[in-house]
Amino acid sequence: MEVRTIKVFTTVDNINLHTQVVDMSMTYGQQFGPTYLDGADVTKIKPHNSHEGKTFYVLPNDDTLRVEAFEYYHTTDPSFLGRYMSALNHTKKWKYPQVNGLTSIKWADNNCYLATALLTLQQIELKFNPPALQDAYYRARAGEAANFCALILAYCNKTVGELGDVRETMSYLFQHANLDSCKRVLNVVCKTCGQQQTTLKGVEAVMYMGTLSYEQFKKGVQIPCTCGKQATKYLVQQESPFVMMSAPPAQYELKHGTFTCASEYTGNYQCGHYKHITSKETLYCIDGALLTKSSEYKGPITDVFYKENSYTTTIK
């Protein structure tokens, strides 16, 4: 009895394709271990004539594949690729409408935090270190965002349907971005203890939790000093293409032309909904596939993004 075979390709990165001759009487799992086709788990399936010449994702289970996976995804987590594939199996079914010149995501599976993050990423200057993220990001900007969303979920250790947080998501993504040249110098002034300067680099240099107003941050924000008295913390120097200011959701007025974009969060910790506000020729609110415009805006804002380049204080 002759062994019926077909020729397929296996890959971990969709760049390096490895030619395989597979036995049609055995499952993919018996031949390769966990195997995925377009995100779908085909591990328990036997090869079919229609699979001839198709590319299958496999887990990096030998040295060659491990090197290829690390170079593309910059992670050695053995569960990463499987999590990416199972997320992709959902995100490829989502709709990605162009809204006001940006790629958004039609609401499904509690994905409003991903839509808000995706919209924000198209408006701030950011370059990702893992080629996987950078490639998928370019495709997302062009309207094909399924891979990018699935990668975000995998890097953030999230599953489809789980509630997510924009600030946490951005923080994970910033860790995989090139923020080497970003720098922030802060000064804390206390009447009792004097003053202390701190220099922050990388992710810490672009994120701040405690106030939404970048102007206020430049002037000074009140913080408790270690001595128990009130101290003032203010920005001395900022070198970065953008800054992200966050605070627990509270009524906040966004003035046209003073910011790049913002995240609105309605609801409580267990259950809520994100919308995205962007400042173009007027203010726009993007909620999944829905767009509304207004000249002014007041609502429960939790993150505001500002364009920056270089700032030095005039406070002496």
Rank of each mutant, 00 (worst) to 15 (best):
Phe32His: 08
Glu168Leu: 08
Leu17Asp: 07
Thr11Trp: 06
Thr278Phe: 11
Ile223Trp: 08
Glu215Phe: 02
Leu186Asp: 07
Gly210Asp: 00
Val99Ser: 08
Glu296Ala: 15
Asp135Tyr: 08
Asn61Ile: 14
Asp109Pro: 02
Tyr297Val: 04
Tyr96Ala: 05
Cys156Val: 07
Lys127Glu: 12
Leu163Thr: 15
Asp63Ser: 09
Met26Lys: 13
Phe148Asn: 03
Leu121Thr: 11
Cys149Phe: 05
Thr11Val: 05
Glu253Asn: 10
Gly194Arg: 02
Gln134Trp: 03
Cys225Trp: 01
Arg139Val: 07
Thr198Ser: 12
Ser294Val: 15
His74Ile: 07
Glu162Ser: 07
His51Phe: 05
Lys255Leu: 12
Gln222Glu: 13
Ile223Pro: 01
Thr116Ala: 11
Cys149Gly: 05
Arg66Gly: 10
Met244Leu: 04
Gly194Ala: 02
Phe217Gln: 01
Thr292Asp: 08
Lys93Arg: 12
Val8Ala: 11
Gly272Met: 01
Lys183Gly: 04
Tyr155Gln: 04
Tyr138Thr: 14
Ser171Asp: 05
Asn187Met: 15
His176Ala: 04
Ser50Phe: 10
Asn110Gly: 02
Met207Ser: 05
Leu254Glu: 04
Gly164Ala: 02
Lys233Phe: 08
Glu281Phe: 00
Tyr172Phe: 09
Asn268Met: 14
Leu173Glu: 00
Ile315Pro: 15
Arg184Met: 00
Cys112Leu: 02
Leu254Cys: 00
Glu68Phe: 01
Tyr274Glu: 00
Lys280Val: 10
Glu264Thr: 06
Phe259Ile: 01
Lys316Pro: 15
Tyr137Pro: 04
Phe242Ala: 03
Thr76Trp: 11
Met245Leu: 08
Pro130Thr: 09
Asn111Met: 02
Pro249Tyr: 00
Thr19Lys: 11
Tyr265Lys: 00
Ala262Trp: 03
Thr314Arg: 15
Leu17Lys: 11
Gln98Leu: 13
Val42His: 13
Thr282Glu: 14
Lys218Gln: 05
Cys149Arg: 02
Val67Glu: 10
Phe217Ala: 15
Tyr306Ile: 01
Gly39Pro: 04
Pro130Asn: 05
Tyr28Asn: 01
Cys271Gln: 11
Thr258Arg: 09
Gly228Lys: 04
Thr258Val: 06
Pro97Met: 14
Leu37Phe: 12
Tyr265Asp: 03
Met85Lys: 07
Ser213Asp: 14
Thr314Ser: 14
Gly267Ala: 14
Phe259Asn: 00
Ala142Gly: 10
Lys298Ala: 13
Gln134Cys: 10
Gln98Cys: 13
Lys201Cys: 10
Tyr274Cys: 02
Cys193His: 02
Gln222Trp: 06
Ser25Lys: 15
Glu71Gln: 10
Asn111Pro: 04
Leu17Val: 09
Ser246Leu: 04
Ile6Trp: 07
Lys255Ile: 12
Thr312Glu: 09
Asp23Ile: 15
Gly257Thr: 02
Phe148Asp: 04
Ser294Pro: 11
Arg83Tyr: 04
Val188Met: 08
Lys307Tyr: 09
Ala177Trp: 02
Arg139Pro: 05
Ile301Pro: 00
Gly210Leu: 01
Trp107Leu: 05
Glu264Ile: 14
Thr282Lys: 14
Val206Met: 04
Asn157Leu: 04
Ala231Asp: 01
Ser171His: 15
Tyr28His: 05
Glu52Ile: 12
Thr278Cys: 12
Ile15Lys: 15
Gly194Tyr: 02
Gly194Met: 00
Gln196His: 13
Phe32Ala: 07
Val185Leu: 06
Glu52Pro: 08
Cys261Met: 00
Phe32Ser: 07
Glu308His: 05
Gly257Met: 07
Phe148Tyr: 03
Gln196Ile: 09
Pro241Ala: 10
Leu118Ser: 05
Arg167Phe: 02
Ser104Pro: 03
Leu173Val: 09
Ala69Ser: 10
Ser279Arg: 01
Gln251Pro: 12
Leu179Glu: 05
Leu133Cys: 08
Leu151Pro: 04
Cys193Tyr: 01
Asn110Ser: 01
Pro224Cys: 10
Thr192Pro: 04
Val21Lys: 14
Leu88Ala: 05
Cys182Val: 05
Lys92Asp: 05
Gln98Val: 14
Lys293Cys: 13
Asp38Pro: 06
Gln230Pro: 12
Ala150Lys: 02
Ala289Phe: 06
Asn178His: 09
Ala154Pro: 04
Glu71Asp: 13
Lys293Asp: 10
Lys93Thr: 13
Met85Gln: 10
Gln251Arg: 10
Trp107Pro: 05
Ser25Trp: 10
Thr43His: 14
Arg83Lys: 13
Thr211Tyr: 05
Ile286Leu: 07
Thr292Glu: 12
Thr55His: 10
Lys316Val: 15
Tyr36Leu: 03
Cys190Ile: 02
Leu37Arg: 14
Thr211Ala: 05
Leu17Met: 12
Leu186Pro: 02
His74Ala: 06
Glu68Ser: 08
Cys112Glu: 04
Gly267Val: 08
His51Asn: 08
Gly53Trp: 11
Gly29Phe: 08
Arg139Glu: 13
Cys190Thr: 00
Asn100Met: 10
Val42Leu: 12
Val221Gly: 00
Tyr137Gln: 07
Ser171Asn: 14
Arg184Asp: 01
Gln20Ala: 13
Val304Cys: 05
Thr266Trp: 06
Thr266Gly: 11
Glu125Asn: 13
Gln270Asn: 15
Tyr297Phe: 13
Ile124Asn: 04
Val160Asn: 05
Ile105Ser: 02
Ser25Ile: 10
Tyr269Leu: 15
Ser104Cys: 12
Pro224Leu: 13
Asp38Ala: 10
Leu17Tyr: 10
Ala205Ser: 08
Ile124Val: 07
Asp135Cys: 06
Asn157Phe: 06
Phe9Cys: 11
Pro241Arg: 06
Val236Lys: 04
Asn49Trp: 08
Glu71Met: 07
Pro130Tyr: 01
Pro60Ala: 11
Leu254Thr: 03
Ala146Gln: 10
Val67Asn: 15
Tyr96Leu: 05
Gly220Ile: 01
Gly29Ser: 09
Asn187Asp: 07
Glu264Phe: 02
Ser295Ile: 09
Tyr57Gln: 08
Val3Met: 14
Asn100Gln: 14
Gln123Thr: 06
Val203Asp: 05
Lys183Asn: 07
Glu264Lys: 00
Cys149Lys: 01
Tyr84Val: 05
Met26Gln: 15
Lys275Pro: 00
Phe148His: 04
Thr10Ala: 10
Gln31Gly: 06
Asn16Phe: 06
Ser279Pro: 04
Asp180Arg: 08
Tyr306Lys: 01
Ile286Gly: 02
Lys92Gly: 06
Lys158Val: 02
Tyr311Arg: 09
Lys229Val: 08
Ala108Trp: 03
Leu290His: 15
Ile223Ser: 12
Ala154Lys: 00
Lys44Arg: 13
Asp77Phe: 05
Asn147Trp: 06
His276Asp: 01
Thr76His: 10
Gly39His: 09
Lys219Pro: 00
His74Phe: 06
Tyr284Gly: 06
Lys92Thr: 11
Tyr306His: 00
Cys271His: 11
Phe9Asp: 06
Gly53Tyr: 12
Thr91Asn: 06
Pro131Arg: 06
Lys46Gln: 15
Ala289Val: 11
Lys191Gly: 12
Leu283His: 00
Gln230Thr: 14
Glu253Phe: 07
Ser310Asp: 14
Trp107Arg: 07
Val8Thr: 08
Leu163Gln: 08
Phe9Gln: 12
Glu204Arg: 13
Thr27Tyr: 09
